[in-house]
Nucleic acid binder design. Sequence first.
DNA 1: TATACGCGCGCG
DNA 2: AAAGCGCGCGCGTATA
Length: 580
Amino acid sequence: MTSDERPAWCVVGRGTGGRCALVELDALGARLREVEIEPERLADEVARRESAVSPRWVWSDTPTWYARLVDAGVTVSRGHDLRLIHVILRHSEMVREARALREAVDWDAPIDLQLEDRSAGETLFELDASSARPGGVPHGIEEALTEFARQRAAIDGATDPSRLRLLVAAESAGGLIAAELHAAGIPWDVAEHDRILAESLGPRPSPGHPPARMVESAAQVREALGDPQLSLDSPPRLLRALHRAEIDVESTSKWELTRYDHPAIEPLLRYKKQSRLLAANGWAWLDEWVHEGRYRPVYVPGGVVTGRWASSGGGALQIPRQLRPALRADEGWRLVSADVAQLEPRVLAAMSADTAMATAGAGKDLYSGIVDAGIVASRQEAKVGVLGALYGGTTGDSGRVVPRLRRTFPDAMALVDGAAATGERGGTVSTWLGRSSPAPEAAWTQAQTSAYRPEASSGEQERARRSARDRGRFTRNFVVQGTAAEWALSWLAALRLALGRFEPVAPEAAAPASGPVFARRAHLAFFLHDEVIVHAPADQAEAAAEAIRAAADAAGRLLFPGSPVDFPLDLTITERSPAS
DNA sequence: TATACGCGCGCG
DNA sequence: AAAGCGCGCGCGTATA
């Protein structure tokens, strides 16, 4: 083993005296070289190694290290996020020996959102001891090397190392992508957003005043209820006023109100919609979150137990469809939007190797395929039934359709029914690539045990059964939602690498607001569970669309080699995102 | 005055 | 018709 061997990994961490340490490892984890450098030189040193050997970069957590590199104009193609991977491995059923990982409690820290959303102007790489936040993961190089060795041992000794390695790579790629999405931002048309607000609410009022059209709606509600002083924003008072008008709802929720025919209902529903728009995405939101034509949400990979991403600040994953037209490509650029048709049922069909379900989905619309197979009469019934199968629905339309699906798709239904049964018993279930559901809380297990005693009251038994069913629905959905998240991460990861190979466009065609790394080529701009938006120079839009399709095919083959299940996309190239 | 919690609704 | 899974956020209300 010689020192000029090509490194497979490069571990980055805090060294001595405020310097950064880089340690290159060979494929077996043996140290090849190590250097300590001043923090200002880190971006250059990373860029040099990336272009020479493109190692997999290992660091404590991606927001801490990578956001600064991206800002400095440096990207890397592959990473290993010790914090994200630690959380997966310490719970994974695939890991045979997790004791050492579980004892490394420092690595079980939640993401530090302050750091992720760091403000501009903060000095680069102030990673000395004084800036380490209590409760965060360790950033020192020796801690990183030790944890990395633990993680490699856990993966190598797993029941299915190759699947777990796919998950580790996909999760880490997600970390890189989240940082890049934040840096690039979503191209946002403030004028269009303002126009949509004005259309619904009236022109922007002066601070502290309600918009005119909301005042109007509220007045109509008060008039119809005969209560001139009523405050619509207080659910208890509104409920009492509705009862006085003989509208016998149990809550003030929208779905319940729509069932009543009364002159107050229409303006009340309108008021609620206006109120929601104003509070969640009104002018204050615009002022706070959109700057220089970009909305830059903070994405939180692994933020959901199932492996889905969460977000923090601005409600990035809940942008109302109504505001979609405010997403607008820069001049000379396009938005390439793609979403997967029925991702979760297709993932279920592939996991369970249910050939009947694969056949129903072959081509385009899975729900229509179920109708065509003569199982249900309408697409809507098919959809409600499939969602009921995934979520554990027992009542209403879904409860009626699920038994038919159980006969038609026995393998798919056996998989989710089995996951539900395991959850009801207090067991753990896992996704296709090995992310496992959390164990039940001690109080849950205690309550189940207690309810089994002969002297347990019927109320106690009923509560225990209900909570067992609740947990069963969670584990039922966990395996599908979690595997769909793995598919989506694989899709994104493949797409990102493909876009990274696009030729830069001429400087005069650049989109400077996207930042130095992304301004001159097609790049990811938005991700939402089963949907991506790529911001692309007009003459790269078609190629980007093809890359999105190719990445979806690649994700399917990677996770489910040989499976007949396909993952068709709805794909559009536009200047402005359609309201749909 | 600050914090915790439930409601309602936006997204998949 | 409005359920069955996973979230984040703003609001009003209750509690300290």
